[in-house]
Design a protein around this nucleic acid. Structure first.
Length: 134
RNA sequence: GUGGAAGGCCGGGUGAUCGCGGUGUCAGCAAUGAUGUCGAGGAAAGUCCGGACUCCAAAAAGCAGCGGUGCCGGGUAACACCCGGGCGGGGUAACCCGACGGAGAGCGCCACAGAAAACAAACCGCUUUGGGACGGGUCGGGCAACCGAAACCACCCAAAGUAAGGGUGAAACGGUGGGGUAAGAGCCCACCACGCUUCUGGUAACAGCGGCGGUAUGGCAAGCCCCACCGGGAGCAAUGCCAAAUAGGGACCGCGUGUCGCCAAGCCUUCGGGCCGUGACAGGGCUGCUUUUGCCCCAGCAGGUUCGGGUUGGCAGCUGUAGCCAUCGUGGUAACACGGUGGUCAGAGGAAUGAUCAUCCAGAGGGACAACCCUUGGACAAGAUCCGGCUUAUAGGUCUUCCACGCGU
RNA sequence: GCGGGCGUUGUGUAAUGGUUAAGACCUCAGUUUUCCAAACUGAAGAUGCGGGUUCGAUUCCCGCCGCCCGCU
């Protein structure tokens, strides 16, 4: 936690910490080639955006993906919602600015594991990736 | 009470905190914020049918091909759906199930077994007649061995009659009983089945009664096919508009240089007119083919194929109607139709309903039962243009009507 | 959203509606060999699921399930 992050907390959180959602296929493909951490409930990928990309350099961006292997539409939607929830609760505080994150749902575990387990795993995975970065 | 049949409804509730999508209001230049309100299903699913809507410029008729439907009548925008009826099958019954036109148009197939598998005949068999004479028996002669006769039985041959019977098979050219006969046979009779038909009932499918025919009728059309009816193609990523960027493309194929007129503006003029433009005819193109109306083209153009380049934004379509929901009335056996009153209920655009906690309602397991306590834990499954159906998945709960059996009064 | 195709032993393929679903590779057992390989002999193993038509279905029809592919 550096001072910059603390300063953000002082301001209105919605202004600078609003998460942007990845939608383009190219963004997902770029993220898939970088570091990733697998947990029972999900797979987390992280990528530092180069300054050449024409996006808000300060923003944290996050994408969610669940393939057909996860299950039918109900199972996929449920998995995505839970991933969205853990990201919303943890990323504004613990995420690094100027990075893209991608959360991938896994079959039959993302939707059933206890929510607290998912949250602790997510923080752990973030720690691993950030440690690699430094 | 037990077992069953048909149909309908619900398919977790309440509260708290944090969050998501649409939209209204307010604040703000804007980003955005505050606040109010609305926010998945009975199957939203599978994409199996039918439509609405949009484009292919639009439309009609015929032919061919392809696909579909298939008892009758009704309902509906339409349907392969629904309702009622008929027929056939199952069930003690309530009730359920049925691709349910045609095998007197034609082609094809029917393995194995069996005498024979589709013109109906052949074969075995049965009967009569004629012939034969190895055997048994009869008669005659003879003590006997044996000899002779006739042709009774069995056997062999031939002719004629017959289709009752023939281990089979999924299926065998009507069935049962009686008469009849040399043996038999619809040969004759009764009943049943089948075919044709008068009359009656019914809109019809069909049913009933009667008459006639002696049988002309095998199965398969979810094999080809015939008959009747229906169907143009593509799909909301349809389609229309706006903006930006790049480009105002290349190659090939196809068509194509016609005739007669007109002259407002512009240009040329030798003042006749010509170019451009425009009208008609001819020609060419436009659904698989033909025809008709129509549309497009004619100095280069629209059409087809292909190569290359740019964009991946916004708005509309987009949810309010063949509406739907609740309720009432009228007509109809019903499906449904008509009318009145009230309400209006997701409209996103890589796509919104989640997380945590408390409590209640069902459920499962345990504490020997109950009260009670502990643990566990919500079926199938989520809109993507919209409707009407079908099919498939579905823990559990609940209501109504009906049937059979048992018991009580 | 629209459309097409395919499911047969462990694998990749055959089979006109008609015996016990054929053959190849693989697996197992035996023979042979000091042992292995090769060869030979033999065995095991399948019609995706549920209905229907038919005397009879891998085949024909219908409904599900799974896989693959195409167009927009």
């Amino acid at each position: 936690m550096d001072g910059k992050n603390a300063a953000h907390k002082e301001r209105s959180p919605a202004v600078s910490l609003r998460l942007q959602t990845l939608t383009k296929r190219a963004d997902f493909q770029r993220a898939s080639r970088t570091a990733h951490v697998a947990k029972p409930g999900f797979v987390l990928q992280m990528r530092k955006r180069p300054d050449t990309e024409l996006v808000d350099t300060d923003a944290i961006r996050i994408g969610f993906t669940c393939s057909k292997k996860v299950g039918n539409a109900v199972a996929r939607n449920r998995a995505k919602r839970r991933l969205r929830e853990i990201a919303r609760l943890a990323l504004p505080e613990h995420g690094l600015h100027g990075h893209d994150y991608v959360l991938i749902g896994r079959k039959s575990t993302t939707a059933t594991l206890p929510f607290t387990k998912l949250q602790s795993d997510f923080l752990h995975a973030l720690g691993i990736l950030h440690g690699k970065k430094k």
